[in-house]
Design a binder for these strands. Structure first.
Lengths: 200, 200, 200, 200
DNA sequence: TATGAATGAGTCTTCATTCAT
DNA sequence: AATGAATGAAGACTCATTCAT
């Protein structure tokens, strides 16, 4: 793969990604991508042989860019609450960013394939995410910044309510207050309150 | 519409519903439905002119069957915790019943259409559900069975985590423990605990 | 065929006739006619088995209603010019009455079938019409009201320019002056002028 | 559009043109054209997306080839009668050439579309033709070769009787004498006769 | 007679995919 | 690598026609 070829592939993925975000997975055809990328039919087939392949590569790229921010910060001995607030802030923003979200496309894509398959990247991401969150929550508990919660339960509550809002924000009008309230409620569950019933 | 026609329509909807649950919305063609219903092309078109129309009618039927169970029980002066436990139990079971769930199909269907439209049935259902839950939570608070929570926040947490799990259960293997933990956590948030930190 | 059946047939023909005038022959389906006549599919088939049959019957009715007005008037010894003016007036009005005109439908219908066939009703009508016109022109010549024209030539000029306008009025905007001018010109050819070059 | 594509388009138009002449407009399907052109369904759709588009392009090609023969001859100061005889001769031949004529197809095509539309090519051709004829008649009058006729009236008589015959020749057997008589009659109207009542 | 459900054939249209250039 | 013409299969949709009621 030389430089020019690689550039074309990136260009294709960028164009395809917009289409997937806009229309979901199945609704996007090779023809659509040709047109969006300003490439001929044959030209596109030089690089990819199906929308599935393109989509998979987009997802792989996204996954590989995910980093272990927490880990780093934990190692830096930062306050658990500060780390939590950072991540919750990011979640809140993502929840309502329906534009750039591939969520519908991802749901479609995975609903088309065998969910038990070993390559179920959604499941891998879930496990990865679970691992990281659990480390953080344990860290907060250890530092006595967090309540003594059921770690798995809180994690599931966080991740699935996050995903639920993300998806619904593509299906109905979602008030900005909704993610805000959810994030606040989660924070309330985790962070130890002072005697007055407030979180610290 | 005479009896025979109505029966055929019901038969078509029943067959189509299985297909939608299995394959989502867009993946189901009129041809599929013909075959499933053992009907000719033209025969199907006598009754419905698109998969969209069939799907819409299925959804409408479902919606119109929804009832106000809570209301009744509240009027019967039942314990808020008992009512809550009933509904949470139902939610827990639904979360993992991926087979019969139209969720993916619904998500696909609504992602194809204008989410701001006045006929967004998903939004209507959200509002309806919100209303009912808020009544229940207020009822529980009034009876001093529930904590003095942020009603909207708790409702959003419930509904979106429920929907999140429901969807993911069609996309990846979801452990039975997950809905159980979530339900338990929600119960913990709502129900007043005794001095020992246990819910009543 | 009892009375009720006959009424239904007339109703069907009336509705179908409007459709043919509006949309031509091939564009009209049995389904269209059912709907226009507010009749079920099977109901229509009780009376007619094809659009062709309906159309043929409409044409037959029209033909059989054609009367020998000329003949009568000639027998009454009316002035040839008066008879001519009556008929030219009728022609002028029909030429631009594109609404009710079946011309396009007739052209389509006959272009679908063998023009040499013995049942070519268009040809029959042409011959019938020729006969009548020729009698009239001869009558006018005999009474010295008309010029000594080439009878066949004038007849052809009349009938084909009439048909030409009738058809074009369904295909492009036709100015009211056009039929007026044509009629006037034809009258000029036929009617003997006085010494000043005016028709009488 | 490269050479190969252009050749295919020409080939398609040629095949389609024969079909239209033979069967009219609506009777010709994309499938017919595929088969006639020995092309696959998709192959045809690469070039044209409807019979309408193909037909329009055929008509456009024909129109753009039309020329102003008269103008040239008038400029060459030829005798008006000679010019007239040339054109009448051409008209006479065209009137009965039902084989190659697209007339029925054209009538059908235009009867399907908005006759008031600005792109009504039939109307444009009528106006163009009117203009040329009027120039010629005026020229003949000026040279005292033609009678002092109502120019518009004579033009309408010519063009509509011509079109009337053209159309009828596809619908019924039209005797060769008919166009001959019509042409002769028109000549008689236009060309100044000598004292004996003969045209010159 | 009349209804309207049902059939099945025909056509339209869109794409994934291939291939000569 | 890239073009774009071409194929062929899949699915949508419309109707003429039949038939049980």
């Amino acid at each position: 793969m030389n430089k020019r070829g690689q550039e074309t592939r990136e260009h294709i993925k960028k164009c395809a990604c917009s289409l997937f975000a806009e229309k979901g997975f199945k609704q996007v055809t090779m023809k659509d991508i040709c047109e969006a990328a300003n490439l001929s039919r044959g030209g596109l087939y030089c690089h990819y042989e199906s929308t599935r392949q393109i989509f998979q590569e987009i997802i792989d790229d996204m996954t590989s860019k995910q980093d272990d921010e927490f880990d780093l910060k934990i190692k830096e001995n930062q306050s658990a609450v500060m780390i939590l607030d950072d991540i919750l802030d990011k979640y809140e923003n993502e929840m309502i960013d329906s534009q750039s979200s591939l969520s519908i496309a991802i749901y479609e894509y995975f609903s088309l394939h065998d969910i038990a398959s070993q390559n179920n990247i959604l499941y891998e991401q879930y496990l990865l995410s679970a691992n990281t969150w659990k480390k953080l929550i344990q860290y907060g508990i250890d530092r006595q910044e967090f309540n003594l919660v059921d770690i798995s339960a809180v994690f599931d509550l966080i991740v699935f309510s996050y995903q639920g809002v993300r998806m619904y924000s593509k299906l109905m009008p979602v008030d900005r207050e909704i993610p805000r309230r959810i994030i606040k409620e989660i924070r309330k569950i985790l962070v130890r309150s002072d005697g007055d019933g407030n979180n610290i």
